[in-house]
Design a protein around this nucleic acid. Sequence first.
DNA 1: TAAATTTCCTAAACCAGTTCATTTTTATGG
DNA 2: CCATAAAAATGAACTGGTTTAGGAAATTTA
Lengths: 201, 201
Amino acid sequence: MQNEHTEVYDTLKKYIARHIQLTEEEERYFVSLLRITMVKKKQCIVQPDFICRYRSYVFSGSMRAYLIDSNAQEHTIAFAIDDWWITDYTSYIFQQPATLFVEALEETVLVQLDYNAEQLLMETVPKFERFFRIITQRSFAFLQQRMLSNLSMTAEQRYELFMNKYPQISQRVPQYALASYLGMSTEYLSKLRNNRISKKS
Amino acid sequence: MQNEHTEVYDTLKKYIARHIQLTEEEERYFVSLLRITMVKKKQCIVQPDFICRYRSYVFSGSMRAYLIDSNAQEHTIAFAIDDWWITDYTSYIFQQPATLFVEALEETVLVQLDYNAEQLLMETVPKFERFFRIITQRSFAFLQQRMLSNLSMTAEQRYELFMNKYPQISQRVPQYALASYLGMSTEYLSKLRNNRISKKS
DNA sequence: TAAATTTCCTAAACCAGTTCATTTTTATGG
DNA sequence: CCATAAAAATGAACTGGTTTAGGAAATTTA
């Protein structure tokens, strides 16, 4: 058990080291604030109306964050596989009730950081201000690109783009989840998959 | 002239003070890194293929950032009026060639921070790591909400939402810019404006 | 203040993508 | 290993929103 945890923490530490350099003491302190959580397929770690207390790093497995709208339709705002963070971001940073579900798509191992621990961490080790700034900036740039794709491309182009950029993800997530991420119906995605749309080639 | 600049810097300093507390010396240092730029209507401060060197704070006037796609269609990714920052974010943070235009919608006064100056600022005054973390987190949460709106709402609902949330902006920007922000054609926006769509009321 | 240009409005034809209904395939737990 | 549920495929009918094409209003410029 301890061995397994060591491996998980080491992976996260390596991820952190890509952005900031910590002393051994700082690393130990950081790790002391974390907790490891295993979630089964379909289990939710965040639900609407509850305040989201954790930011979760995916060590293995995969997760998705989605909204259920007033017509009972699902809309996926994010996937997370290894080395990505996931949470209901709005709920987490403002500590207000969530609107999203965050659910495991398969058996998943997470490393979770509590909101209060995160605040404390940034005060105690200011380098983490930098760390969270950098990863948030990257997430923002990523999301802006996605927004632009959704504004400027057709469903088919969005599908092609996703397949090129994230072939791994497309194989691991259910098709209805991918459709709701790309902003199209499952039926239409199915047609695209079996390219019964444009007979260009 | 000096008076005018003082007013501009004071507004920005007040904005900064909402998130971090600076000493007078830090404030002076910060201000020394800034420059004020006036832009005329339709003038672009960022263009595709050029690296975006500045982050711009809007003191007065209004700006928008947009993409021109392969069909020569415009897609607005952001507006900025007083107290907002604007830039081609991806180009700025990665210092890579821009893909967007950032254009003045009216005569506008900007305060600009150079990329290298920003890096230096964060090293010299680490509080700014915190400042940029916080504003980036808020921008991210905002963009995620917008992404969810675009995935889950109809054109009409998006229009209504925007009008409720940003009545000031809708009056100041041209209709084609708003349509391209909301992800619909100008013709359809025009129909919605004169509500010739749903005869519910 | 007239001319030029840009923005805005209108309406009919059209189409990308949805909805609905049904079938086939794949997962899953007991 | 079967039973049953969940996910994916398919096709026909439909619709929200676009396209195209025009003309009216407003803004800019000379």
